[in-house]
């Protein structure tokens, strides 16, 4: 019944709009000669509206930047992330300048040169100097951005092999994540989905010596200030490990191993003290308490960021960054693969 009413209201609403529009149309027709010819008055009105829109648009842009500054991610918590953030700031600077130059020109000209029967447009086919200028300037700016971008990319993706990173596997399946630590030998044992059986949820090879000391956990713990090499594996469909605070993202692809190396620079505890994070958490908790929800405490997250099925939105894993001692102690407490068998 409720549904029927709802639909009825919807249909009536649409009919009302259509009828209002109809009245509009008929009155326009009664008024006379050709209501559809654009008059000088229309040009004035629309030109003015375009100019007003420009102010509204720039104002709204400034408002968004000001009031939503607190929702965007805090500064990067990883070594390469800081480089990405600098590149981001410069690229954003370039595009905001371009935005603030072109939009006013577009809407400003639309207003300034609004039509009038008394005027005639200036005939102007092309201007080689002008065109060379606005081909050249973007080309030069882009050359800079490309060089800077490629340097950052290459440094991020090709870490030095001498880093001797801590090797950790991140394993995705519908709909959760697991982490696997390589144990004392810092070498992950062979694993394949075909070997999955009972408690051996990640399909580790029992016959591979290096898999026996591996440790499988539900939370990803990482030591601070030490390079970590994450190796990604997926059980069923493509997942993507997205750790926004570290500026890390890599797909986990069934049948292929992918990897991403980075170095966390701030522990969870330090990040919780960061002014930006404190501010953000405060905002969130105000909203949460209004809804009667438990207070939220900041944690690093690893989110699934490749559509993977119905619970994709809820497929994530907590990431804890701690000091080397805390990390060692935690890892010590975890059971090895051999112990779980």
């Amino acid at each position: 019944m409720e549904t029927l009413l709802f639909i009825l209201v919807g249909v009536l609403g649409i009919i009302a709009i259509v009828q209002a529009v109809r009245v509009f149309e008929i009155s326009a027709r009664v008024k006379g000669d050709d209501e559809n010819k654009v008059s000088d008055k229309d040009n004035r009105t629309q030109g003015l509206l375009l100019l007003l829109f420009l102010f509204f648009f720039l104002g709204a842009f400034a408002w968004m930047v000001y009031s939503w500054d607190s929702v965007i991610l805090p500064k990067a918590a990883s070594l390469h992330g800081a480089d990405i953030d600098s590149l981001w700031a410069i690229s954003m600077g370039v595009i905001i300048v371009a935005f603030l130059v072109t939009q006013p020109l577009l809407f400003g000209f639309s207003f300034l040169f609004r039509g009038s029967k008394k005027r005639r447009a200036v005939y102007m086919e092309h201007n080689n100097k002008l065109e060379l200028f606005w081909t050249g300037v973007p080309a030069v700016v882009l050359a800079g951005l490309i060089l800077y971008g490629l340097t950052t990319w290459s440094e991020t993706m090709n870490p030095s092999p001498e880093d001797e990173p801590l090797v950790v596997e991140v394993y995705g399946y519908q709909f959760n994540w697991k982490a696997r630590y390589s144990g004392t030998d810092n070498k992950l044992g062979y694993a394949n989905v075909r070997l999955i059986e009972g408690v051996n949820q990640l399909g580790l090879d029992v016959n591979d010596v290096s898999s026996l000391d591996d440790k499988v956990t539900n939370v990803l713990h990482l030591p601070v200030d030490r390079p970590v090499m994450l190796k990604f594996r997926a059980q069923d469909v493509i997942h993507s490990a997205y750790m926004p605070h570290f500026r890390v993202q890599m797909n986990a692809v069934p049948g292929t191993e992918t990897q991403f190396q980075f170095e966390p620079t701030m522990t969870t505890a330090e990040m919780r003290q960061d002014p930006e994070v404190v501010e953000k958490v405060k905002n969130i908790n105000e909203l949460r308490s209004a809804q009667g929800k438990d207070p939220y405490e900041f944690d690093y997250m690893l989110l699934c960021n490749k559509i993977c099925g119905s619970a994709h939105y809820n497929m994530n894993m907590k990431v804890v960054v701690q000091t080397q001692e805390q990390f060692d102690k935690w890892l010590q407490e975890q059971k090895s693969f051999a112990e779980t068998l």
Binding site: L106, F109, S110, F113, A121
Partner: peptide
């Protein structure tokens, strides 16, 4: 944008 410059825009 330059096409609009010094045009006689019929909006």
């Amino acid at each position: 944008i330059t096409t609009l410059w010094k045009g006689n825009l019929r909006l």
